[in-house]
Design a protein around this nucleic acid. Sequence first.
DNA 1: GCTTGTCATGCGGGGACCCGCAGATTTTGC
DNA 2: GCAAAATCTGCGGGTCCCCGCATGACAAGC
Lengths: 238, 238
Amino acid sequence: MNVLIVEDDALHRTFLAEAVRAALPECGQVIEAENGLKGEVQARTARVEHVVMDLQMSERNGIEAARTIWRERPDTKILFWSNYSDEAYVRGVARIVPEGATYGYVLKSASEERLKLALRSVFVESQCVIDREVRGIQQKSFGNSPGLTDAEYEILVDVALGLTDKAIAKRKHLSLRSVQNRLQQLYEKLDVYETPGQGNEGLFNLRTRAVAVALSRKVLNASAIERAERDLRQSAGI
Amino acid sequence: MNVLIVEDDALHRTFLAEAVRAALPECGQVIEAENGLKGEVQARTARVEHVVMDLQMSERNGIEAARTIWRERPDTKILFWSNYSDEAYVRGVARIVPEGATYGYVLKSASEERLKLALRSVFVESQCVIDREVRGIQQKSFGNSPGLTDAEYEILVDVALGLTDKAIAKRKHLSLRSVQNRLQQLYEKLDVYETPGQGNEGLFNLRTRAVAVALSRKVLNASAIERAERDLRQSAGI
DNA sequence: GCTTGTCATGCGGGGACCCGCAGATTTTGC
DNA sequence: GCAAAATCTGCGGGTCCCCGCATGACAAGC
């Protein structure tokens, strides 16, 4: 059993390597890659089935790397190990995990014990392990509390990209008016209408304000926008 | 000579503590804080004059913490130690360093040697040390290449907050038309007008598009927006 | 069956935004 | 000190966005 570690921080990388060797004494080689691109190559050439993956790397982030790895071998077991539990990351991961694949999501702030346990659970027992805190985000995200619908989320991403209502309508095969309706739902859920009172009526441009609020609530983050941007170029530019 | 380390990642914290002790054998206590807020308190109570500060922390980020520390003791020497050299961070630091204060900016990807050297230079020799890569950003930022003027940058921030043209005009004591002029300069510098050709005319909403481009070019980042948001609330809400 | 709820769509108006033109004011360079 | 360049400001029009009102389709529940 070989394990691939994809992580751009040198300190974290060696820490992970030690943790892997300690938690899985029966494992063979421990391979390291320092960014998503190299990680993809290593996974392909070394035919690895077990990956520990950081999100948030330059060159190619963890979500994109995981997507291509899973596309080539959907039975690969991936343990995501991230600094943050941003809704954008959680959503991004959930969006790419293939049917029936086993994966895990552990925060870097978790104890070493929890990390080792997750390593064994995911890689040996083929069990999905989601950190408690991430779990909370996930439920909020897919449940009905102040989280967004998938439809609303997609509109939000398109707006954040800077697309026009009309352009979104074309992309999503909707009428102009439907797009605007979804936008209004979005505005309400994001509390864009807050007016501290004294005549601050025309204070906000709702459209850009929505993006700002989404960013500071971590519903969106820069890497999610970059991913969407690439998708856009690909589908539009061909 | 006591040294305060403000850093939220446990691994990096212990690594830093060791590096400090190795580079400055003559130093006294090495105090650690795990976020910006605790860092401020420690700096105040322990009367520290030498700080190693991470940017990008939850609770209160490094720039805000540094600002309050410097406000209380402008002669504090601060070495910033960050993962990224985003233009937004560089600008944020440059914006708060007091007249004549000594500070440094080293990337986490730098070698241990470089870190130790910077520690001695800043804390003992009172010399400013800016990482080569960061230096590049700084020049681009203040020079005249595709970097933004301060005026343009401020407009950009206000737009990213979701403010109306009118609201920005009031805040900045300008006429509506001047704000729109600056916006146009901004649009040109950010290459918002790119149209791949085939009839993509009304594709982008320039205003939100500008924010998207600025984010993916790292001219802006989420924490800069959050800071601006707090400033806004403070100046408007009173 | 009828009601109720959710969603997509159309219409129309008021307002915000983008931008060319042109004059006034300030800054810069020599 | 003067000319050139940059910046601020007003006007006007074309476009896009926000949103209330109204219609029809489809599903769930009494």
